[in-house]
């Protein structure tokens, strides 16, 4: 760890990191508490949108101030994660819909163009 820090920086980074961790934990907590798959699919997006965003922002601010130059490469992780998570969730949701329809489970909407089954 570093020896000396301005007080405002440590408070700002602390608030951002703890807030982001709390949001991420809330999402993963939802993974345990929610009853079915379609509800649970909303849980990880909290970690990838705002939870992750706050923690990466804290990292960017911390390294920019302590290294005395602009460090924004956390932005790449943020962009990558926010763009790819919807893709994986959509693929997973479509796979689940497909499997639920084949198994004939209740509570699943029929295929929208209807001629497949």
């Amino acid at each position: 760890m570093i020896d000396d820090l301005p007080l405002w920086l440590s408070i700002l980074v602390s608030v951002l990191v703890v807030g982001g961790a709390l949001l991420t934990m809330a999402g993963c907590f939802g993974m345990v508490r929610l009853q079915n798959f379609y509800l649970r699919i909303h849980a990880p997006t909290m970690g990838t949108s705002m939870g992750g965003g706050l923690i990466l922002l804290a990292s960017a601010i911390y390294f920019t101030i302590t290294r005395d130059r602009l460090i924004v490469h956390e932005m790449i992780i943020f962009l990558f994660v926010t763009v790819t998570t919807p893709v994986t969730l959509m693929l997973l949701a479509r796979a689940t819909l497909f499997r639920d329809r084949i198994e004939g489970n209740d509570g699943v909407p029929k295929r929208i163009n209807g001629d497949q089954q």
Partner: peptide, 8 residues
């Protein structure tokens, strides 16, 4: 999808 609370 990125907005928590709705999924495409």
């Amino acid at each position: 999808t990125a907005t928590p609370g709705s999924a495409w």
